[in-house]
Design a binder for these strands. Structure first.
Lengths: 339, 339
DNA sequence: CTGAAAGCGCTAACAG
DNA sequence: CTGTTAGCGCTTTCAG
């Protein structure tokens, strides 16, 4: 016969029922705010709860109701302030809807992402929001398409997964057109490499806008990085500065962290911004407005991106059958002094 | 009679057992890697698992084993890169030990923190790491001291809660002594206000070092803020710049975000750093090295702070009775160009 | 080495 | 309005 090993202080719903002189069903009813309980009975129960110090065991409730009330959020790097703002948006609507957020840093590693997705399969999370590179998502797409998840920022409209993001192609075009309007014709692109779909979209926006302006880009002006670190931006800037006569007069970096690194790298090469080289970033993270020179950048509605992702997911949980379309939020070019 | 509403595709351990022609107990044994199962039997089970596409329901396991394998982390603001680095440290050791991390942003709000602590009470998390202001923690101290949690960065040695942090008093003293050594006698302190214990500790370190150097501080040089935003730092800088002849020649800000704001504010007042005013920050967040001028600051071992906190908590979970002492990690003054 | 069976603590039919 | 009872899906004695 299995024995109960719980410490004596653990009080269960049955204890409360006994103390109140009612059934466990009644206790459950008042706990869950059902209305069909007489007032005196309700009070008896509440009193018993109070004196016994009872706390509901949500693990048991979770099993019974078959939900964990947890939303999983996967980010490639929560050291990047860009993600922090989005995560805050997710968190706020999750909480408003009675969910908590399980935050995981995948480091853009497919294996780690896979193991996090197992949280869904094991019912430990009810749904997931994925901010990982599309390449990483893709590996999962087939087998995971039935799982309740949505994509945020990184998305492949063709993947059949609900998503929210911005029009990266247009945004990159806006930047190039602005720069061209200011007289620049030698415009570099510092891009995050490989897996990121937004990288490709922004590259295409950059290329198309250049073509439309009748400008041919020097191959050396297009740099692919495998990191969004400040340091990576610095290295890219040095590389560009070394071009001598072929040096670009403007640089478009696909992330503010990169752009800040670029500015610093340019400074190290005795080039001043924006006089010698104009610099435009992307994201509009908090620090962008507070450096020297203040960064001209494309603002993404970060908080709203997160909120929308959470709403999309919640909707998918409520109506599993409903077809949820992808949504694109507006971006905005913020003019400051760096370009 | 209650009916089973689970979709037909949901397969349970009983289905696997039936398919393999064994009992659920045996399936469970195989799943949990128990050794007392004959090889042929094990293979039958594994085969049945594979063909049925069975995934263990961790909610059920959690109820049975009475643990959630989740660690709760509460931060006052995950927009601050300082916290991001710590959180990464926590996450890495949590994962190494088979736990996932539930990350919550309390906004330094006692009510929200309380509600998060309820996750512990409801067994949805096995333990917690709290980075909130001591004042917020204190409200919980009495009733929550029995709960398995540890404090990180913010700690009251007298509270009886295991903690990890740095010696803030000494660190602030180091900054002041360095500044005095460079000839400064008019040293301002820009502090986070109110609740934060580290604020008080750093203030005392600042004050004591000043006294030891025989310097009397002008009251106007001590500014209390209720935010660590860049903007808050900027406002403080303007305030200091307006002092005219009484203007300090050095500023010690208790956070890098504040310090970056200060530098920007000073620049707005046409004061240059470090020539007119030297600026020292605290934390050594990633961007600190990449602004102009690069920030002199006190580095905290952020990753290690998080890792240690997680280890402390894990130890407390394993040995509930053991007395865990507080631990102080070394800090380091990083000299760059801002001071 | 394997199986039967007793729950973990809770919710929700169903019957009264 | 309230109680009885059957599980949710799993782990773990205890017997054989």
């Amino acid at each position: 016969m299995p024995q109960t090993v719980r410490p004596s202080e653990e009080v269960s719903i049955a204890d409360v029922a006994a103390r109140a002189g009612v059934s466990v069903a009644t206790v459950s009813r008042v706990l869950n705010g059902h209305t069909n309980v007489r007032q005196p009975t309700r009070e008896k129960v509440l009193a018993a709860v109070a004196v016994s110090g009872y706390r509901i065991n949500e693990l048991a409730r979770n099993l019974r109701t078959a939900e964990s009330r947890l939303l999983l959020t996967m980010v490639p790097d929560f050291g990047n302030p860009f993600y922090a703002a989005i995560v805050r948006g997710i968190d706020s609507v999750a909480r408003q809807n009675g969910y908590f957020m399980l935050l995981c840093d995948t480091g853009a590693d497919p294996l780690r992402e896979r193991s996090y997705f197992d949280l869904l399969r094991g019912r430990r999370a009810d749904g997931a929001i994925c901010l990982d590179p599309a390449a990483v998502q893709k590996a999962l797409a087939e087998e995971a398409s039935a799982l309740p998840w949505v994509a945020c920022c990184e998305f492949d409209p063709a993947a059949g997964v609900p998503y929210v993001g911005i029009d990266n192609h247009a945004a990159a075009g806006d930047v190039v057109r602005y720069l061209v309007g200011r007289g620049h014709r030698k415009i570099a692109l510092i891009n995050s490499g490989h897996g990121y779909l937004y990288g490709r979209q922004r590259f295409e926006g950059y290329r198309d806008a250049l073509v439309a302006a009748g400008i041919e880009a020097h191959p050396a002006w297009q740099i692919e990085l495998d990191s969004l670190d400040y340091t990576a931006g610095e290295a890219a800037a040095r590389q560009l500065a070394a071009l001598g006569a072929d040096r670009p007069t403007a640089v478009f970096a696909v992330s503010d962290t990169l752009a800040i690194g670029v500015i610093n790298g340019l400074r190290g090469a005795a080039l001043s911004v924006p006089e010698d080289v104009a610099v435009v970033g992307f994201d509009d993270i908090a620090v962008a407005a507070h450096i020297d020179p203040p960064l001209t950048t494309v603002a993404q509605p970060m908080q709203e991106l997160g909120e929308t992702a959470a709403h999309l997911l919640l909707k998918r949980l409520r109506e599993p059958e409903a077809q949820v379309a992808g949504v694109l939020l507006p971006h905005q070019l913020i003019l400051r002094r760096s370009a």
